[in-house]
Write a protein that binds this DNA or RNA. Structure first.
Length: 623
DNA sequence: ATTAGGG
DNA sequence: CCCTAAT
């Protein structure tokens, strides 16, 4: 976040003349203030980051000024449109504790921010730059609050940092008149925002406004049409609203959080802007990085579509934020998803997503991903420079492009089958260790990984042990299938013991594994008997009662967890419904998966339907 | 600790 | 199967 500072300086240079924009750093520790600062960073078409024009950077100090203890910039992330909804969401979001939302997010920025800006700007501008680089690490508070997915920035052409404040205590701030809610607030804000607005404005408007902006253009003066245009530029969608006040407010808010702006919207404008500012690109880089961090993972999805955000934010009203009203008018597309319980995008998912995005934008990206510890091994371009023969590589398709990666860590992950283990106890440990070590590579730092790779390279080759992963998996499946059949014959108890023994073995390997943290449970094909029991259990206790089913029906199969049951059931359902339509499918299905007797499939389907229909109703009734 | 879902 | 979010 602090990194933004860098931009600031750039901006400053660019703007030089424009006196109004000032950027002052803020300390994380600072108190609450109500100033609003806007910072825009744009990602050019080529992916480079370009500092926002002077207008783009705006600081507004509406409320009180507080003493700034430290000089550092804090970047606040404030979703304009989504603010209301966002807040509600944020509370729940794990990343940001509810408490943080108000106190943390808001406070840090506001206080010192204003003060500094007003008074010390000039002196500190320089300093800021220097601090800026450091800042990111230093202000824990601010960072945490703002912590967002870093990747986010990749997507957006425009990045902007906006700080807003004050969600918390409006009453206290009333004096400021900055309340977003209040109409008057809008005006005050509008002045301040004139500059930001401008950035958003269509190209035509922009330039002309430029001068004006500095002077202070008021949204108020713009005709409705212009406002609508601005709105479109800001949010990337048309608006039919003719209410000036609404538009102004909306725009104002929107400008605050440029992140919301769909990338497509500003493209043209960006070009212009970019041209203007191109020189300062380099500086911005740092900023971009920071920005990425700022964006919250959860936001990631929402950000692209400005329209969606309002969904399901009924709670928003609960919050005192003035912003709420927007919800009502246009976007109002609140849908209820009672059926499935909604989940916010998974972190992993997000990361992957961002990851790929990053890859795409890679060229432009600065090599500042440093912190990403959990990068995918595949992603890393490991240049094994062992000129000798380490030709063992595999192609990884990343974001469309293929990357050659030394083939390494794909030794079989799981432990050998119990049976095998029994036969070769001594070996098993070795195998385990091996596997685990191979796995461990995944988590190793690049340097470590590299060394590993090198070491392994020769070994692998000579041994010719490695098997293409994909290939291996399929192969293993077959193997397992066969084995499973064997198991099937065994008595449940027996299985258990074997399973336990296997567990023990696992434990042996565990230590190593724990470090790597990844060992995959050995794949156990589901036997027909298991499936049958599962179906039976579902029929008895109902789907969803996996804990029960496991306890009662699967007491003998220790290795099947409730989750496994659930997953299996899911698959069974899929299978049962998939197959019936075209009987061929079943027969044609690859031999890999077990054939499930039609009767069972039918029964499964029945159960599924029964439950899907009955349970909901019953639930409703019960409640 | 369990469940539901997505990967 | 694994991983995470939601309950």
């Amino acid at each position: 976040m602090g990194t933004v500072v860098g931009t600031v300086e750039d901006c400053r240079e660019m703007f030089e003349g424009s006196a109004q924009t000032r950027i002052t750093p803020f300390s994380s520790t600072n108190q609450i203030g109500n100033p609003v600062a806007y910072k825009l960073v744009r990602v050019a078409g080529d992916g480079r980051l370009v500092p926002a024009t002077d207008e783009e950077i705006l600081e507004v100090n509406e409320t009180d000024m507080h003493i700034a203890s430290e000089s550092c910039q804090a970047v606040g992330y404030l979703p304009a449109d989504e603010l209301p909804s966002r807040l509600s969401q944020i509370e729940s979001s794990e990343a940001i504790s509810s408490g943080l939302l108000e106190s943390d997010n808001v406070e840090p920025y506001t206080d010192q921010y204003n003060e500094e800006m007003l008074q010390k700007v000039e002196q500190e501008e320089r300093l800021d730059m220097t601090h800026g680089s450091q800042m990111p690490s230093t202000p824990p508070d601010a960072n945490i609050k703002c912590s967002n997915e870093k990747d986010l920035f990749d997507e957006d052409q425009v990045h902007c940092e906006a700080l807003l404040q004050e969600p918390v205590s409006f009453s206290s701030n009333v004096q400021n008149g900055c309340d977003m809610n209040q109409s008057n607030t809008v005006e005050t804000c509008s002045n301040a925002e004139a500059s930001p607005k401008e950035t958003a404005l269509p190209a035509a408007a922009q330039k002309p406004d430029f001068s004006l902006v500095r002077g202070e253009i008021c949204l108020d003066n713009l005709p409705i049409k212009a406002l609508q245009e601005t709105f479109r530029a800001t949010f990337g969608r048309e608006t039919t609203v003719k209410d000036k006040t609404w538009l102004k407010r909306r725009i104002t808010m929107g400008l605050v959080n440029s992140c919301n702006v769909p990338t497509t919207n500003l493209t043209i404008e960006d070009n212009k802007l970019v041209r203007n500012q191109e020189k300062s690109n380099d500086v911005t880089d740092a900023v971009s990085e920071d920005m990425g961090d700022d964006v919250r993972a959860t936001n990631l999805k929402d950000a692209p579509s400005s329209t969606d955000h309002m969904n399901g934010n009924p709670k928003a009203s609960g919050h005192s934020l003035s912003v709420n009203h927007y919800c009502a008018s246009e976007d109002f597309s609140c849908e209820e998803r009672a059926a499935k319980r909604v989940r916010k995008p998974t972190r992993r998912y997000i990361e992957e997503l961002s990851e790929s995005e990053k890859q795409q934008n890679d060229k432009s990206m600065i090599p500042s991903k440093d912190q990403r510890v959990s990068e995918k091994p595949e992603v890393r371009s490991i240049s094994v420079s062992s000129g000798k023969r380490v030709t063992v590589t595999r192609m990884v398709s990343l974001a469309g492009s293929e990357i050659e990666v030394p083939y390494v860590s794909h030794v079989r992950r799981s432990r050998p089958r119990e049976n095998i283990m029994a036969l070769m106890e001594s070996h098993s440990s070795c195998l385990e260790a091996k596997a685990s070590s191979g796995e461990s590579n995944r988590n190793l730092s690049p340097s470590q990984l590299t060394s590993e790779v090198v070491n392994r390279g020769s070994m692998v080759q000579s041994a010719s042990v490695p098997v293409q992963k994909e290939f291996a998996t399929s192969h293993n499946n077959n193997e397992e299938h066969i084995l499973s059949e064997v198991d099937q014959d065994m008595e449940p108890e027996h299985m258990d013991s074997s399973g336990n023994s296997s567990d023990d073995n696992n434990n042996i390997g565990a230590p190593i594994m724990q470090s790597s943290g990844l060992r995959r449970k050995h794949h156990r094909a589901w036997t027909l008997s298991e499936v049958t029991k599962l179906v039976e259990g579902v029929s008895k206790y109902g789907a969803g009662k996996w804990s029960e089913i496991k306890k009662l029906s699967f007491s003998s199969y220790s290795y099947r967890t409730s989750v496994d049951l659930k997953d299996k059931w899911r698959n069974l359902l899929k299978a049962s419904f998939a197959q019936s339509p075209s009987n061929n499918m079943g027969s044609l299905k690859k031999h890999g998966s077990m054939h499930i007797p039609m009767p069972i499939l039918l029964r499964i389907r029945e159960l599924a339907e029964k439950q899907s229909l009955v349970s909901p109703i019953s639930k409703v009734i019960l409640r």
